[in-house]
């Protein structure tokens, strides 16, 4: 599946400056091709997460359109888009994203649970892949930052999505785990998924098929 954005931009209302309108992402065209790992790199506050969220179908652009294999996601009904996201889009949020009342296994199973399906086996397999299979019953508040991150990645991949977004997926991982995560993301791309990763770590460049730089809302 290929993601194509046409002339998307995002403005926020923000007091200050001359106009109170703050351009977080300047108008740009963007493609996330299937089978490749695309990387966006940039300074903090440059608009990376904003762009990623617009592409992922969770932040409506001020203007412009986003197509998934020809379908304009922002014209889909909420129920449809949600189900589509559940099946086809994996998303690793920036920062902590555990559901605190569920243990690790249940967190990883969540994409299935939300639709009344049994995701136990898929969840166990995904956890195995990221080395957290022995943490099944542990509650998230007992985990280290790196373990939490691996849990979030396992959860994003549990349904084998065709498109994967990862916002700073290795922010709190050590080198070994960072390599493991990027290795998996790369593998996923090689299997045919469209992968978009936002990062400020230059080490990860070697895994990327394409690299974009973002600076003050401008994509370069």
């Amino acid at each position: 599946m290929e993601v194509i954005a046409q002339q998307i931009r995002k403005e926020y209302y923000r007091r200050g400056g001359s106009s109170n309108i703050f351009m977080a992402v300047e108008p740009c065209d963007f493609v996330i091709p299937a089978g490749q790992l695309t990387l966006i790199h940039g300074r903090s506050g440059s608009g990376k997460s904003t762009l990623l969220n617009m592409l992922a179908g969770i932040l409506r652009p001020t203007e412009g359109r986003v197509f998934y294999d020809g379908t304009d996601v922002y014209r889909m009904k909420d129920v449809e888009l949600s189900a589509f996201r559940n099946l086809h889009i994996g998303y690793v949020p920036q920062g902590q994203s555990a559901v605190s009342s569920l243990n690790v296994l249940e967190n990883v199973m969540l994409p299935y649970t939300l639709y009344g399906e049994d995701g136990r086996d898929a969840a166990l397999a995904a956890m195995e892949r990221f080395g957290i299979a022995d943490l099944c019953e542990v509650m998230p508040d007992r985990l280290s930052g790196g373990e939490l991150r691996r849990m979030a990645i396992a959860r994003a991949l549990v349904r084998n999505p065709q498109v994967l977004f990862a916002d700073e997926p290795t922010g709190d991982l050590d080198d070994e785990n960072t390599a493991a995560v990027f290795g998996t993301l790369k593998e996923l791309a090689q299997e045919g998924a469209a992968v978009l990763v936002v990062t400020h770590e230059e080490d990860s460049f070697r895994y990327a098929d394409r690299i974009f730089d973002m600076n003050a809302g401008k994509l370069g």
Binding site: A56, I58, D78, V79, S82, A83, F84, R85, N86, L87, I89, Y91, P93, Q96, S97, V99, S100, L110, P111, L114, Y115, R155
Partner: peptide, 18 residues
């Protein structure tokens, strides 16, 4: 308190109705 958790559920595919 659970704003972020609900946002997480949403990106995992929960509709507004859910």
């Amino acid at each position: 308190e659970r704003k972020k958790e609900f946002a997480v559920l949403r990106v995992l595919g929960a509709s507004r109705r859910k």
